[in-house]
């Protein structure tokens, strides 16, 4: 795992004890702790990419980490364009890749 949350018992900053929460990412459970952002939960669990770009189909995740670059956009509970680095995760949040191509819909994809 490249990115990870520091285990509370090994953290010199001594954060309070974990209060686990689970978010659902493209159907899979990912566990974090209360107070984390969605990006924090994902990175903390070793996930570094959760968006696919519209044009090139390239993977993206966090870049600026402070809400400026809009690279980390996700769909949260059906609402697109939520900055994962700013939104605090709630237990049960359903998170989806908003850049993925439409799944079997009849609408034409924008071409350029």
């Amino acid at each position: 795992m490249t990115s990870q949350r520091i285990a509370v018992e090994r953290d010199p900053v001594e954060p309070g004890p974990d209060r686990p929460l689970t978010i659902w990412v493209d159907g899979e459970p990912v566990t974090g702790t209360a107070g984390q952002t969605i990006a924090g939960v994902l990175l903390g669990a070793g996930r570094r990419q959760w968006r696919t770009t519209r044009e090139g189909g390239a993977p993206r995740g966090v870049f600026c980490g402070i809400g400026v670059c809009f690279d980390c956009l996700v769909e949260v509970n059906g609402l697109p364009d939520v900055r994962a680095c700013l939104r605090r995760a709630q237990d049960g949040d359903v998170v989806a890749d908003q850049g993925a191509p439409p799944s079997g819909g009849s609408l034409p994809e924008v071409t350029s």
Binding site: R54, P80, D81, P102, G105, L107, P108, E109, V110
Partner: peptide
């Protein structure tokens, strides 16, 4: 004559 326009973020075409 002044005109204002709004632009949304990119989305799948609807």
């Amino acid at each position: 004559r002044r005109g204002m326009v709004l632009v949304t973020t990119p989305m799948r075409q609807r």
